[in-house]
């Protein structure tokens, strides 16, 4: 464990807590893509299949349970909570996430470190996580006004993987000089996808104006 990775995990946790707080406090999920949230549940379920089999550390196990629990409860709120589900506008959240799931799964079958169930699912989850934010970004482009909480949520979500990139650089030079192309390239793509969001988010923050993404 190094400071970059801890910062990454805490940023990730904060983003999810922020979203859960918005949904519970405002009883609204306006501006949030259910498609992206469902993709994150798939990402966590397929990445943490070894939760019950492999014990790395207390921290690792507890965080996995927290990520699984919070992501599943967010989808539950958006799908089944009597008040929150009324605030979900499925007409604007139209990104067909099967177009992300299938290619990522096929790619994981073709490009992986080992052709085992655990390894292929882990690889699939990395590829899927890299593109999971797309439905949310498309939704933001369609939203006239993006509320601050949603903007902050997406920003923190993008920032966490940037910390992980620093963590991988650190681990490569300081720890075991182990090349890990799959997480590295997936993480690089994931962070790159946020690039234009980061640009508009920081610009709106500097100019103290409402966050607006060009359509």
């Amino acid at each position: 464990m190094n400071a970059f990775r801890l910062a990454g995990d805490m940023t990730h946790l904060l983003s999810i807590i922020l979203l859960l707080h918005k949904i519970r406090a405002m009883k609204s999920c306006a501006g949030i893509s259910l498609r992206t949230q469902e993709l994150y549940v798939i990402v966590f379920v397929t990445r943490y299949v070894d939760l019950s089999m492999k014990y790395y550390s207390f921290y690792n196990s507890i965080m996995k349970i927290v990520f699984l629990g919070t992501s599943i409860s967010i989808v539950w709120y958006m799908r089944y909570h009597k008040v929150v589900k009324q605030t979900y506008n499925k007409d604007v959240d139209t990104f067909r996430h099967i177009f992300l799931i299938l290619p990522c799964f096929v790619l994981a079958l073709l490009i992986n470190r080992a052709f085992t169930v655990i390894e292929v699912l882990w690889t699939f989850s990395l590829y899927l996580e890299a593109v999971a934010i797309l439905p949310q970004l498309v939704l933001l482009q369609r939203s006239r006004n993006i509320d601050n909480l949603t903007g902050n949520y997406v920003f923190l979500l993008g920032a966490y993987r940037a910390f992980y990139l620093l963590n991988w650089i650190y681990r490569f030079f300081i720890e075991n000089h182990q090349v890990r192309w799959i997480p590295w390239l997936s993480g690089l793509l994931q962070t790159a996808i946020y690039a234009d969001f980061f640009y508009y988010y920081i610009k709106s923050w500097k100019n103290r104006e409402k966050l607006k993404l060009p359509a």
Binding site: D9, H12, R47, Y56, N60, M63, K64, A114, Y164
Partner: peptide, 10 residues
């Protein structure tokens, strides 16, 4: 490259 420290991240 042992499997362990590949999957030890979240």
């Amino acid at each position: 490259t042992s499997n362990a420290n590949l999957h030890d991240e979240l």
